[in-house]
């Protein structure tokens, strides 16, 4: 007992030193992880004369928005943005609609084949695009949907619908059916009760799922690479790839490449921060709560 007491201050100091080291490590690692993101923004503001010098400049002093201006006036950004918007928004709307109906079915009804459907959905969400794109390419070319926004949007919808069903299922199950029934007792019709009571409560879930679907479709590269081979039908990720692709054959305009990357990345980062929490818990739900 007495030895333990006399050892206490020393142990305390030990813990304190440990905590300081841990704090320094945490901040250092944060810097390591954020550095590429910072470097993208930093480089996008600097002129190529600075970027091409052998000594990097770590702060954007003397920077300007010239790279952004050059990218935007290059004439290829806006068509790609338009394609991306059409593809993504179509996919998001279809995906939410389909997934919402399916989520209602599996969380509000008990029916034959329900478990089989859930099992299929969970397996399908694991299917890698890399194991499917050859067949999807052949299918799209045989129905004449290669290089079309609607074709790509259809493939994206199918790719994102499974996880969206899974995510929405949780939200629908979280709204007790009793609430709806209470409204029906008070004289509302079933549809009325659904739209007045359940639907507003599901809004956050729909927004989160919608943003998730948006991010998936907006960032997708593999399927787009296979389906959208014409230069005029490129989505933003393909457009961005075009810049780096030639880096071995000619001098790359890194300032513009980084400005282009920033244009693609910054809106996505904002969106992502909005749904991050739900995304993590959706993927490992059973394990964390278990």
């Amino acid at each position: 007992m007495s030895t333990a007491l006399s050892a206490a201050p020393k142990a305390n100091r030990h813990i304190k030193v440990g905590k300081i080291i841990a704090s320094i490590a945490a901040v250092a690692l944060a810097i390591v992880w954020v550095f590429p993101v910072y470097w993208m923004v930093n480089s996008s503001l600097l002129p190529n004369a600075v970027l091409n010098s052998p000594t990097p400049r770590f702060l954007p002093f003397g920077g300007s928005l010239n790279n952004f201006r050059a990218v935007l006036s290059g004439g290829t950004f806006f068509p790609a943005l338009k394609t991306s918007l059409i593809v993504t928004l179509t996919a998001v709307v279809l995906c939410l609609l389909f997934a919402f109906c399916a989520a209602l079915a599996i969380s509000r009804y008990k029916f034959k084949g329900r478990q089989g459907f859930v099992l299929a959905v969970l397996f399908i969400q694991m299917l890698p695009a890399e194991g499917l794109f050859i067949a999807q390419y052949k299918m799209m070319s045989s129905v004449g949907l290669l290089n079309t926004a609607i074709g790509l949007a259809g493939l994206y919808t199918a790719a994102v619908v499974p996880f969206t069903i899974w995510m929405l299922r949780g939200f629908v199950a979280g709204v007790p059916a009793d609430l709806e029934e209470a409204a029906m007792v008070d004289g509302a019709t079933r549809t009325g009760a659904f739209f007045r009571i359940t639907f507003p409560l599901l809004a956050p879930g729909l927004v989160a799922s919608g943003v998730y679907a948006f991010l998936q479709a907006w960032n997708e590269f593999t399927i787009a690479l296979v389906i959208m081979q014409k230069e005029s039908s490129r989505t933003l990720p393909l457009w961005l790839r075009g810049f780096v692709q030639q880096s071995n054959t000619r001098e790359v305009d890194w300032g513009q490449v980084m400005a282009a990357s920033s244009l693609v990345a910054l809106p996505v980062i904002v969106f992502f921060l909005l749904v991050q929490g739900r995304l993590t818990s959706g993927l490992v739900a059973g394990a964390v709560k278990g």
């Binding site: 992880w33 470097w39 693609v264 980062i269 992502f272």
Partner: peptide, 25 residues
């Protein structure tokens, strides 16, 4: 919080944009 923000920003990067930055690095 600092560590979490650093990780979140990296996680949020679209993969193609992240790749262009890494190729540049």
């Amino acid at each position: 919080l600092i560590l979490q923000i650093g990780l979140l920003l990296a996680w949020a990067m679209p993969v193609v944009a992240a790749m262009t930055v890494w190729v540049w690095l």
